[in-house]
Measured scan of single mutants.
Amino acid sequence: TFYNFIMGFQNDNTPFGILAEHVSEDKAFPRLEERHQVIRAYVMSNYTDHQLIETTNRAISLYMANL
């Protein structure tokens, strides 16, 4: 899942690491979701930090390219 992918960046001092920290603390994050459209919609609806949203979009693109 995307959640498992992004958790691989925990403790990294990178934008993906920052995203992983936010996702791990977000109890409502769709952890079992595999459809990138649902993940993107969730982030757009629940996150207000523009940098975090952009990082999510980049992470989703990388995740999709590696499926």
Rank of each mutant, 00 (worst) to 15 (best):
Q10L: 15
L67I: 13
Q37S: 12
Q37Y: 13
N13Y: 07
M44Q: 11
E54N: 08
Y42M: 02
E21L: 15
Q37T: 12
Y47W: 14
R35N: 15
N57H: 12
F5A: 01
Q51G: 11
N46I: 06
E34R: 15
V43I: 12
I53C: 06
T1M: 05
P15H: 09
Q37H: 14
A65N: 11
N66D: 10
A65G: 10
N66Y: 15
F2K: 01
I60H: 02
R35T: 07
F29K: 00
N11M: 08
E54T: 07
K27T: 11
E25T: 14
T1K: 05
Q51R: 13
H22R: 12
E21H: 15
M64E: 11
G8W: 06
Y63L: 06
N46G: 03
A28P: 03
I39S: 00
N4V: 09
Y42W: 05
V23T: 02
H36V: 14
T48H: 12
N13M: 10
A20E: 02
E34V: 15
T55C: 06
E34N: 15
Y63V: 03
H50L: 14
V23A: 03
Q10E: 08
F2H: 00
L32T: 13
E34H: 15
Q10M: 15
A65M: 12
I18M: 12
E54P: 03
M7L: 10
D12A: 11
D12M: 12
E21I: 14
Y47F: 08
A20K: 06
N57D: 13
Q10V: 14
L62N: 05
K27P: 14
F29G: 05
M44N: 10
E54Y: 07
L67N: 12
P30S: 04
F16N: 01
D49H: 06
D26V: 06
K27A: 12
K27N: 10
Y3P: 00
D12Q: 14
S45V: 09
L19C: 02
E34W: 15
E54C: 07
A65V: 09
R31F: 07
V43M: 12
R31G: 03
F16L: 11
K27Q: 11
I39G: 00
M64R: 09
Y47H: 02
G17C: 04
N57K: 10
E54K: 08
G8N: 11
E54S: 08
A28T: 14
Q10G: 07
T14Q: 03
R31T: 07
I60S: 01
H50V: 14
N13K: 12
F5R: 01
M64F: 08
R40E: 09
I18F: 11
V38S: 08
V23M: 11
A41W: 09
M7V: 06
F2V: 03
P30M: 04
G17R: 07
E34Q: 15
P15V: 11
T48I: 10
I18N: 08
E25F: 11
G8D: 08
I6Y: 05
R35Y: 06
D49K: 06
Y63K: 01
L52Q: 03
R35Q: 10
L67H: 12
T48V: 09
L19S: 01
L32G: 12
G8P: 04
S24A: 12
